[in-house]
Design a protein around this nucleic acid. Structure first.
Lengths: 232, 232, 232, 232
DNA sequence: CATGAATGAGACTTCATTCAT
DNA sequence: CATGAATGAAGTCTCATTCAT
């Protein structure tokens, strides 16, 4: 049941059997991403995913232990991608302020670029937050630690107040980004799914706002707060 | 999908059959709250809820159209309570700043007082965020509008910058509170549920922090931001 | 999941709900007996049994934990009946020799009267003898102990030789009866099952012999052996 | 349902491809014997047998038509061995009495020497006795006819009573031997399989008795019966 | 011949919902 | 109104068998 990595056979990049395996695994994960995003984890049938992936039902079980494992693997895969992108963005920036902006910007970019993945991460993987967070803790903690590191650096440099402990600040900022993502993803048009008519906008900020601009607001709120600066 | 109302019989007399009906309905909702919090919506069986409520399985269907309706009704009931508390807290405060603090404080108090309800609202109701938000939109929008009103008032008075449009600021603040609640609720000890061993803390801020103190940080971050004030 | 006995309610014999329950349970067991006898345990589908019993598939699971439990319960039920009959027959006889004959005769009668049950006990319940004997040990041991008691009494009285320890003699005698039952049951005509054509007789004694007469041979062999008596 | 024969290629040259084929076929049968003995026929997966035999899953199907054919072929193979041994033992003895003893002794020796094979023949092949006996009839009949021949000879010589027809006597004796084998095989320690705790002994003769001594009892019972001889 | 990845039919079991009492 | 036994649709997962390499 061990999943061989594409390089497991020490070959090059030309399609060996290990590559085939990794490729098909990826195809199934992609299919699962779409189906979970569309129907939700519980409503998604393994048969749906198999059809979407173009494989037989049983094939799913050659690559994943069960439906739960598929969800967890999907989470791992996508979070790995997210963490890598965020880490790279932060690494490329010089100052804490620039790093924070880069973090926010990178996350928003990811959401816009890969809304289906974002939908699964932000919405469906919360299905039973309890259940997921247990599995998601490590990857999710990685993300929070990266952000906390940026905050802590800013605090250490004296640029930022240390009134709020860095780990908590990181979590609060994450809460903003998460909510932003959620609002934007839910506000998009995604075709009449499950025959439900689109409900009226939840609030004025609800549907179809420019998430890139909104990201700036997160940066602004986090750094400057709401208070009007006397010297502004 | 119509939610049966306790007043459907149009009585209103105290102690009459209509009251009995309302009382039993409430008993079922309370049971559902506990069971949903414990097992999650999908894993919760109608029979579990019936047993917890001390009624027969079929009785559930005399008060709710189906399992979904039970979840939606539970959401409505609890959000009504939340909105009322938040509105009262805001109404009792004089300035926008005081109102914001009151809002935050009231929400945190609710979480601490009624963690089971909070768990359902914050965690389990997200199961299929799409599904829930559709139904939750009105009540949830009410909450966001209340908060946005506070922000807008502060901006109108010139106390707060209007760099971030009030509805968006409200949503971002809500994101912080939601994440705070989530972290705190997941971090609590709740007995070994479902036999899963407690996972390692996701991050330093993970388990068992003082949510009341953390609420102050939300206020601080929102109003002052991270930047060190020249005159601080 | 506790199965109430018919008298659990302390009523009389007029059909209370507990009676209904016991009756339906019995109906399912009877259906299972027929289906197991016809198709074998593994080939028997729960749906087959449900149809045969005239209940819905799910109803089976209101009375039995799973398919295995159904088999075990069936074994328990039928062995109880067998043991009771054998014990009664032995009790009604005076001398060890008469008791042994009564035991043999009672067992053969049971097979003739209830060939379907006998088929399940003798053939299908051996499916995985290992599996079944584990569960069957107690009931089966009861039968062997009853027989061993008869042998031991005969040995104690000096009528029978104690060259063979009673428990072993009992087991050997049981082996004869079991083989006799098997041969007779397999030799009966039971309609073209599963479309398999009846195979040629296994041996001259194979098909359609008079099991009652054969039972006498068991008694003769056990008591007198093959050797021609000098005084015979 | 035709069983592929190793000699199908009609070669017979030693060390040639036909031998390779026969050898691999034997390897698969050996593996099947172990796996069937361990897990039982229905629980045994073709993949298990392939792994045990050190071949690919598909290879099984180059040597056997299907899983049933594998079982039948295994039965044929082992029964052939058993019949040969029993026939040789009988042939080497002079008098019916000596032949009967030789038969019993040879069978017990086989069980002790090859308990795994014995387990499959005695226990697992009964899974669906109906199914197996249909296929097993010829080989099994051979065994019974051999034994019946011995009995008949003894009866013809006047040494033994002909009160019990030889074929029936043979079958009854076989029942004893079979039960003896079953009890001994089930009583052996075979490592904690399937995690089941060893059940309590079914009866006093249950676990760990000396099957060789017990074999003498079979002989004694068959020839002399239980009755105490007046002149003994 | 050998391989083993893929197939897909099929069974057990669960559980929301109904309805006769 | 309340009950809870019964229903039966539906989904996950297994595994014998096939077939392209």
């Amino acid at each position: 049941m061990t999943v061989h990595s594409p390089e497991a056979r020490g070959r090059g990049a030309q399609g060996g059997p290990a590559d085939d395996r990794a490729l098909k695994r990826e195809r199934i994960l992609d299919a699962a991403e779409r189906v979970f995003a569309q129907r939700g984890f519980f409503a998604a049938k393994v048969a749906d995913i198999a059809r979407e992936a173009g494989v037989a039902d049983g094939t799913i079980y050659l690559y994943f232990k069960n439906k739960d494992d598929l969800l967890i693997s999907l989470f791992e895969s996508r979070m790995e991608r997210v963490n890598a992108r965020l880490a790279a963005a932060v690494a490329a920036a010089a100052t804490p302020r620039a790093q924070l902006d880069a973090f926010i910007r990178a996350y928003v970019d990811l959401i816009v670029e890969q809304p289906t993945a974002a939908e699964v991460l932000t919405i469906e993987l919360r299905q039973s937050a309890r259940f997921m967070r247990e599995y998601s803790a490590p990857r999710f903690g990685e993300l929070l630690r990266l952000l906390a590191g940026v905050i802590a650096a800013g605090q250490a440099s004296g640029e930022w107040s240390d009134a709020v402990p860095a780990p908590h600040a990181a979590r609060l900022i994450w809460g903003m980004l998460d909510e932003l993502a959620l609002a934007w993803l839910l506000g998009r048009d995604r075709g009449g799914r499950r025959g439900r008519k689109p409900p009226p906008a939840a609030d004025d900020s609800g549907r179809k706002f420019d998430i890139v601009r909104a990201a700036d607001w997160v940066g602004a709120l986090v750094t400057q707060g709401l208070e009007r600066r006397s010297n502004a």
